Amino acid sequence: MSVAAQTGPSPSFPPLFRAQASGDPFAAACAQARAGTDAGLVLHDVQLDTLRAAIVFAPDVALADAAVVLPLCGVAFQNAFGSHAPPEVAVHLEWGGALRVNGAVAGRLRMAADPVPPEAEPGWLVVGLELALMGFSDAPGTAPDRTTLFDEGCAEMDPVLLLESWVRHVLLWINTWSEDGLRALHGEWSGLVHGVGGGIAGREGVFIGVDDRFGMLLKHEGGTALVPLTDLLEDTP
Rank of each mutant, 00 (worst) to 15 (best):
T37M: 09
W173N: 06
R168V: 15
N79C: 13
E88P: 08
W173Q: 12
A120L: 15
A62F: 10
A31S: 15
G141F: 04
S22Y: 04
T224S: 09
A5C: 02
G40H: 04
A85N: 02
I55F: 02
G23W: 02
P11R: 03
V206G: 09
V116D: 12
L217D: 04
G74E: 05
A106Q: 03
V61D: 10
R203V: 05
I208W: 07
G128A: 09
A33H: 10
A112R: 10
E130Q: 08
M111H: 14
V193C: 07
M111E: 11
S137L: 02
F77V: 00
E234P: 13
A33D: 03
G141I: 06
S178N: 14
G198E: 15
H169W: 11
L131H: 01
P11S: 08
P237D: 13
D65A: 12
A112K: 11
G96L: 03
E152I: 00
V101C: 09
L162P: 06
A98R: 12
G181D: 06
N79T: 15
H44G: 05
G128D: 01
D24V: 12
G187W: 02
P140K: 08
V206F: 06
L125Q: 10
M134I: 06
G191Q: 07
V116F: 09
F13Y: 12
L149C: 00
